[in-house]
Design a protein around this nucleic acid. Structure first.
Lengths: 184, 184
DNA sequence: CGATACATGTAACCGGTTACATGATTTT
DNA sequence: AAAATCATGTAACCGGTTACATGTATCG
């Protein structure tokens, strides 16, 4: 019912940051704590184990930037195989399960993809994103139409809120598409 | 940075269902698998342990509806202290941390509260929900205004998407408020 | 009689949370 | 010298995921 995410949202966010420029665990924690968008845990108990896992898996590697101190300051950067994995992940197309179960991942992918896999991939992404959303909205509207009479007021309102969220995303995708198609 | 949720979203959803009418674990699984809105795991490995925990904590209790069979069919219903806890949870007011970190919980609460704690509480909820959202949107817009020049196009678009989602929710809350104020 | 839906559970695993522990560097 | 900030980590806990195991009732 869920499946797929070879890369967790946290790992993706971390790779997004260190792709821009190599960073320490602490830099990453600060970035997550200060950024208002995309909520990631900035707790050391999340970040450091994640960095260890990703290192073990060969996606990133940490270079001790200073010599023989007891507490080494490690600056992490992407490895080749990490970049590879990241690019493959960013290039994946959008399906219905993604829009239902992995919206956070989708938006995070969008915010990274233009700079890492280029404009063409970004446009492809937005088109499939909008298409899947519009199809799913149609499906939900149909469901709502049938269920409405038997639903309590607030159940119906909650569902309209859910559908509204998907519609907002679809409209945003169309606007973004227009803007990105007509610029440099 | 996160704190608070005395009740997990899954527990809340389960209590919402069995408040309407006593149900078995299997009924709950089916409800989660079929309902298009609010994504809950319908896997037995999530549901049954959750039911056990909630029973242990005294929020619900399961009555074996049939006598000496090897596989008893347990119908769960709310206990008094469970109803108490649920009502207290539903009556909580909305703060900024809720709209940032617990939007799912908020919408689930909304969909249940009218029938469990009444219209007045629902209206109070919607008012504080709208107010917090509008304040947070203002804050984000301000942040975006400052950061915009130094942001990559897609970073800006992603942030606009995030803000748009909050705005959509605020607008929805105002509409819902109007509808609920003027009806029965 | 076999398939399918009904129905309940367990166990290994994984990753995030909270809380704690420690040390280095900079500021007051 | 004390306090704050920079910086890295560990350990216990909790709950969800996946996969497995089992048994019952109904229907063709």
């Amino acid at each position: 019912m869920k499946m797929k995410p070879d890369i967790s949202t946290l790992s993706l966010a971390i790779m997004g940051l260190i792709s821009q420029r190599p960073q320490t665990g602490y830099d990453i924690r600060k970035a997550f704590a200060e950024k208002p968008l995309g909520h990631f845990s900035s707790s050391p108990g999340a970040i450091y184990p994640a960095l260890q896992r990703m290192t073990k898996d060969g996606w990133i590697c940490g270079k001790v930037d200073d010599e023989k101190v007891l507490r080494p300051r490690k600056v992490y950067e992407m490895t080749e195989s990490g970049r590879d994995l990241l690019e493959r992940h960013l290039r994946q197309s959008v399906d219905r399960d993604d829009v239902i179960w992995r919206m956070d991942d989708l938006m995070l992918r969008f915010s990274l993809m233009d700079e890492i896999v280029g404009r063409a991939a970004t446009l492809r992404f937005l088109r499939s994103f909008a298409t899947e959303l519009e199809a799913y909205v149609a499906h939900l509207r149909c469901f709502l139409g049938e269920a409405k009479p038997s639903m309590p007021v607030c159940g119906r309102l909650a569902m309209e809120n859910g559908i509204g969220a998907y519609e907002m995303n679809a409209a945003w995708a169309r606007r973004a598409l227009e803007e990105l198609e007509t610029d440099a």
